[in-house]
């Protein structure tokens, strides 16, 4: 079988002028756009465009658990279903959920659980359905970010929002927000999720090689970058209501 485009990585991940392949600086994020309340039938929903990633999240619950044996008598459970569309990556992805999807579903559930009050809803389940329409590196971080937004939109009591992003090392330089190609060809990749309640780290995965001193620096960078994403999350949630208020005031002004 002939592959139309060779799956080769570029030799250098930096341009001659010091910028990255997509023209970003080392600590610059990809453009992020978020939206809430995009799906009518879900209790809460959100959509994110993070660079080339396009992801939907829908929240249902609290509701009955099926199969029933998964329910716990003393607390509710959080179930996450992370799925990728067949056309979301370059080679067609087989639609059956594989090892990778199950792992990502689990880590997203684990990193969102500390902010929820599951003990208030015994015997029930919260379910988050995440559908990746387009993938280009860092989907697990983007999914976590959008899932927490959908939970907040559903009106579920939460201690705080959760923000996630990937940091890493490419060509010996520490960078923020790895894209798909940097993720594969780079030296180290470190997805990290932060809950803003007490500023705790909720997820930390690591893949590659890095010094301990570099790890400290990169964690600091991650927190700074996460603050920028958090602001977008807060503004997205508030804008849904503020825009209605503004429209009314505009109409009023028009009448006068």
């Amino acid at each position: 079988m002939v592959l139309l485009i060779k799956d080769e990585y570029p030799e250098k991940l930096f341009q001659e002028n010091g910028k990255r392949l997509d023209g970003r600086d080392k600590k610059e994020l990809r453009p992020i756009k978020m939206e809430v309340d995009v799906l009518k039938n879900a209790d809460g929903s959100a959509y994110i465009e993070w660079g080339n990633n396009k992801i939907f999240a829908a929240v249902f619950g609290p509701r009955e658990v099926h199969p029933h044996h998964l329910s716990k008598p003393d607390k509710g459970i959080l179930r996450v279903f992370y799925r990728m569309a067949t056309y979301s990556v370059f080679d067609r992805k087989r639609p059956a959920p594989g090892r990778r999807e199950k792992e990502i579903s689990m880590i997203i559930a684990d990193c969102l659980e500390p902010v929820l009050f599951l003990e208030l809803y015994p015997g029930t389940a919260f379910e988050i359905f995440i559908q990746v329409i387009d993938a280009d590196g860092g989907t697990r971080c983007a999914s976590t970010t959008v899932a927490s937004l959908a939970l907040a939109d559903a009106g579920i009591p939460m201690k705080s929002l959760v923000t996630a992003l990937a940091v890493g090392k490419i060509d010996g330089e520490l960078v923020v927000d790895l894209s798909g190609i940097e993720d594969k060809a780079g030296e180290a990749d470190l997805p990290i999720a932060i809950t803003w309640f007490n500023d705790e780290i909720s997820l930390l995965q690591f893949d590659g090689e890095m010094d301990l001193s570099e790890l400290d620096t990169v964690l600091k960078d991650a927190k700074e970058a996460a603050k920028k994403i958090y602001e977008i999350q807060v503004n997205t949630l508030k804008n849904k209501y503020i825009s209605i208020q503004n429209n009314i005031e505009k109409e009023k002004g028009g009448e006068d």
Partner: peptide, 9 residues
């Protein structure tokens, strides 16, 4: 107040 707040604020 008409102040909107989000979880964690």
């Amino acid at each position: 107040s008409r102040e909107l707040v989000v979880p964690g604020e």
